[in-house]
Write a protein that binds this DNA or RNA. Structure first.
Lengths: 165, 165
DNA sequence: TATATTTGCGTAACTAGTTACATATTTATG
DNA sequence: CATAAATATGTAACTAGTTACGCAAATATA
């Protein structure tokens, strides 16, 4: 039986194929970290880069900037704190806000991590070229303008009364 | 703070962006099904299409064809069985094998479901064009030839002794 | 100023996948 | 023919995300 069956499945196929690619990159990154004995998870990379640059950020800010839900950020931060890569302090002006920042350990290990990321980047560059980056942008613009769900609702003029119940 | 921050993050950004797109499509599909009061999950679509065509398949066959791990298929099948969309029988020639097939309920509801999928397809077609499909193929070919992990290992001539421990 | 609304964080329960391990059956081999 | 290896299914424990809900603090409003 053909292994590229997904390609024959049209709609369901496209989205599954995108997910397949995305998943395989993630799980492979994980394997690379494991092989290097780095106690780091793939999605931490984003947080490191972000906080290196911005120094202190709140949960909500990180979620907003990376496009995740805030509970996702809380989970990642919690784990990174356990590994002593992050610490947080309460904002003196607004006690609801938790200011999250890199620890000394992070800053110490960052050069080594950056070296590894550079090596991973070289490998990823053999897969992801200019065309793909352009296309990512195109897709993002389409989805940023209006979500797929909203497009569907508008297309068929369905009224979303999920908020009015 | 800019919302397209991911675009500045290079390597980590690309993979996160692909995941972001893939996730948003999935969660939006889920919303569409919910709005239509269809008690169906997005990834069931693939199973329906596959079994409609192939009639009977084993867990391993489905996993192979769709590119999932076999436990993933077991989970999906289990849920679809609970909703009476699938049933299975033990292969008479090889009692290890479970032959999975659509139920009468599935066959009865399929026309209606296909109608809905056609509507969803129209909306997805406003996002996914020829360029994107071509690119998907390109990416898949690169990854099919050699996994990212293997590419990394070969690139830096690291010996994978995870199997020899 | 008192009350209502918004905002920020956190948790719970869910989905979708993975790898690693266990068990049973079938097939291959000495 | 007995034993070893491969195959098929299933379970457990894990990751990564989501939505829905609760609570407290800050802000807006009557």
């Amino acid at each position: 039986m053909k292994r590229d069956y997904l390609q024959t499945l049209e709609t369901a196929g496209y989205t599954a194929r995108i997910k397949r690619i995305s998943d395989s990159i993630m799980y492979d990154s994980r394997k690379v970290y494991a092989t290097l004995n780095l106690n780091i998870e793939p999605n931490w990379h984003l947080i490191f880069l972000l906080l290196k640059q911005e120094k202190k950020m709140t949960v909500t800010q990180i979620a907003e900037v990376l496009g995740f839900s805030h509970p996702a950020i809380i989970k990642i931060v919690k784990k990174m704190k356990l590994e002593k890569y992050l610490e947080s302090e309460t904002d003196t002006k607004d006690s609801r806000k938790q200011l999250i920042k890199l620890t000394k350990k992070s800053l110490l290990e960052l050069p080594k991590l950056e070296e590894e990321w550079e090596k991973i980047k070289k490998v990823l560059d053999t897969i992801i070229d200019e065309d793909i980056i352009m296309l990512l942008k195109k897709l993002e613009e389409k989805l940023a303008h209006k979500s797929l769900f909203q497009t569907y609702m508008d297309y068929y003029k369905i009224e979303d009364n999920s908020n009015t119940l």
